[in-house]
Measured scan of single mutants.
Amino acid sequence: MAASAHGSVWGPLRLGIPGLCCRRPPLGLYARMRRLPGPEVSGRSVAAASGPGAWGTDHYCLELLRKRDYEGYLCSLLLPAESRSSVFALRAFNVELAQVKDSVSEKTIGLMRMQFWKKTVEDIYCDNPPHQPVAIELWKAVKRHNLTKRWLMKIVDEREKNLDDKAYRNIKELENYAENTQSSLLYLTLEILGIKDLHADHAASHIGKAQGIVTCLRATPYHGSRRKVFLPMDICMLHGVSQEDFLRRNQDKNVRDVIYDIASQAHLHLKHARSFHKTVPVKAFPAFLQTVSLEDFLKKIQRVDFDIFHPSLQQKNTLLPLYLYIQSWRKTY
């Protein structure tokens, strides 16, 4: 089996927390979720979201995140109150960019949308954001926290390059993509939290790379249903696996070995980020709550012996909000 052949990389499970039942964490995340308004986002309300009498641009960002990046939404709820709305805006910006690729039928249209967001970032730093909910909220975040323009532009530029429907040539190319998107998002989150620390940035770099790799793995069944495969070609070739094997949902050992190798790289990034947690300011830990969902996925895929098409991998963990709150309460990542 794939797991038994390579099992030495995987460390002990961390979500089991001995003695936790003896201490009762304060009510927090679930209460916040219940208090949030929840009407559906419609095209009509989106168009009017920044106008008078609408929910408001902040509510639009929150709803977009809740629907399109639920794990990011849950993590954002546990940030300090003064930072929450800015991170909602930042993550909503990322969602807007991420959904361009799947929402257009022609690359030219995707490039036009990316050009809109490039100009939007430029206009935000000229205090002239367009009348668009996410743009307005992002402008507020930039003004409030003096966010670095370079990180925002890196996210747009990398998403634009990724409009080509090509597999990553190697794991390094996937890591570079993750660094310029997910890690950049974390650098900006640290700025919102008021953290300027080399060790925190180092952790953000590795956690962002782990996030990018896990996202690529999780999306494999969806991409396969659209006749697309984006997994690193070098690892596929190493194990003699073709793109057609993934399109046919082949579950042979060599296919699972490909998934094992890729998942192991995410695991190593996560492990390395945690190896120097004592040197990272505690104030930075809330920015890294996504490690909970990353670890949850890596454990699940290990349990199914790296069968990327196993139905259990597509099921939401209903206990994730609780695990996130516990992680926040324990002040760790």
Rank of each mutant, 00 (worst) to 15 (best):
A273C: 04
A167F: 14
P130Y: 04
A89S: 07
N180T: 06
V87T: 11
G208T: 02
S45D: 04
G194Q: 07
Q327I: 05
M237V: 10
K107H: 13
C216N: 10
H202M: 05
N94A: 05
R226G: 11
L217D: 00
D165K: 07
L77G: 03
T220V: 15
V46P: 05
M112N: 14
E191L: 03
A200N: 00
K278V: 15
R150S: 07
G208C: 00
R303F: 09
M114P: 03
A219T: 08
R169W: 15
R227V: 10
E96L: 11
I326S: 08
H145L: 03
F297I: 05
K172M: 10
H59M: 09
V229T: 13
Q182R: 07
A98E: 05
H310D: 12
L238S: 14
S85F: 09
W329Q: 07
S275N: 14
S184H: 14
I235Q: 06
R144E: 09
L231H: 03
Y70A: 08
S105L: 12
H269V: 01
W329H: 09
L270V: 12
T181I: 10
K166W: 11
H239C: 03
Y325K: 10
A47W: 14
L97D: 00
Q265T: 14
K283V: 11
E96W: 03
E244M: 05
L65E: 02
R256T: 07
L74I: 14
P321R: 01
M153P: 00
L97W: 01
G194E: 07
F230P: 09
K143I: 07
N128W: 08
N176M: 11
H267T: 08
Q251C: 15
I308S: 02
F93G: 01
E63V: 06
S264F: 06
A48Q: 15
P232T: 05
D58T: 12
I326T: 13
Y168M: 07
A273D: 02
V258F: 00
Y323N: 15
K196S: 06
Q243D: 04
L62T: 12
K154C: 06
V87N: 14
G110V: 06
T279C: 10
S85T: 13
F88A: 15
K140F: 02
H206C: 05
P221M: 14
H272D: 06
D197S: 14
K140N: 08
L174E: 01
Q265N: 11
I171K: 03
L188N: 05
V121Y: 02
F306C: 05
F288N: 01
L320A: 05
E244I: 03
H310R: 00
L298V: 04
L188R: 00
H272Q: 12
S225Y: 15
M237P: 00
A135Q: 02
A203Y: 02
F288S: 01
P281C: 05
Y325P: 01
L97T: 11
G72E: 06
R256E: 02
A200T: 07
P232Y: 01
P232Q: 00
H277K: 11
R66T: 05
V214M: 10
F288V: 02
M114D: 03
D245N: 06
E160A: 12
A49K: 15
K154M: 07
H202S: 05
S76V: 07
W139C: 10
V46T: 06
I155Q: 06
S312E: 13
P221A: 11
V134D: 01
P80E: 07
L268H: 10
K299D: 12
E179F: 03
M153A: 11
E82Q: 15
F306M: 03
D197Q: 09
E244G: 03
A287H: 01
V134H: 03
V104I: 12
S50L: 06
D307V: 02
E244F: 04
L247T: 06
V258M: 05
Y222T: 07
S205C: 09
R84Q: 09
R227Q: 11
S76N: 09
Q211I: 15
E71Q: 07
E158K: 04
K143P: 00
V95H: 04
I235D: 03
L186W: 00
W139A: 09
N162Y: 12
T279A: 11
V121N: 01
N250G: 13
H272L: 14
V292T: 10
F297H: 08
R113S: 07
R248Y: 04
D296M: 09
K196E: 07
T189N: 06
H206G: 04
L313Q: 00
M237H: 09
E63T: 15
N317Q: 15
P232K: 01
E106C: 05
R274F: 00
I262W: 00
S242V: 06
H239T: 01
T120K: 03
L188I: 09
R159E: 04
K67Y: 11
M114E: 03
T291W: 01
V255N: 08
A178V: 02
S205H: 09
R66G: 04
Y187F: 10
I124W: 01
Y177K: 04
V156T: 06
E122G: 09
V121A: 02
R218L: 08
V87W: 04
V142A: 08
A263E: 01
G110S: 14
K228Y: 11
R84G: 03
A167P: 15
A47D: 04
R330H: 07
K166Y: 15
N250L: 14
S225L: 14
L62W: 13
K196C: 07
E71W: 03
R303K: 11
L270K: 01
L217K: 01
P286C: 10
L152A: 02
L97V: 12
E179C: 02
R91N: 09
L74Y: 07
Q265I: 10
G56Y: 10
Y168V: 14
T181N: 02
L322W: 10
L78N: 09
L190Q: 02
H131P: 13
I235F: 07
K67I: 11
R226E: 08
A141D: 01
G224W: 08
I192A: 14
Q251H: 12
E137P: 04
D305T: 03
G110N: 09
Q132E: 13
V134A: 09
F297G: 02
Q132G: 15
S184W: 00
T57R: 13
Y187D: 02
K118D: 01
K316Y: 12
D296K: 07
R330A: 08
G240L: 04
Y125A: 04
W55G: 15
T291I: 08
K154S: 08
C126Y: 15
A284S: 09
S293E: 10
C216R: 01
N250A: 14
Q99A: 15
D127S: 08
I124Y: 02
L247H: 04
T189M: 14
P286L: 09
L247K: 05
S205Q: 05
Q290I: 07
A47R: 15
H310G: 00
D165G: 10
I259H: 02
K140L: 03
K300N: 12
E122T: 10
Q182E: 13
R227N: 11
T318R: 09
R91V: 02
S45C: 10
V104F: 09
K119A: 09
L190P: 00
D102V: 06
R150M: 12
L324E: 00
S275C: 09
S264W: 06
R150A: 06
D197I: 01
V104P: 07
L188D: 00
K299A: 14
L79N: 10
A263W: 06
E82H: 15
L62F: 12
L97N: 03
S83D: 09
I262M: 11
L186P: 01
K140Q: 07
T120C: 14
A167L: 14
L77W: 04
V156R: 03
V258K: 00
T215Y: 11
S83L: 11
D69F: 00
R274Q: 10
G51A: 13
N176S: 13
K271N: 12
L270N: 00
G51R: 09
A219M: 05
Q243Y: 06
Q314Y: 11
K300R: 14
K161G: 13
V142M: 08
M112Q: 14
E63F: 06
Q315H: 09
V304G: 03
E191H: 06
Q315I: 09
Y177E: 06
L90K: 02
S264C: 13
Y323G: 11
R227E: 08
R169H: 13
R66V: 06
L238K: 14
I136T: 11
K154G: 07
I213C: 05
L78C: 14
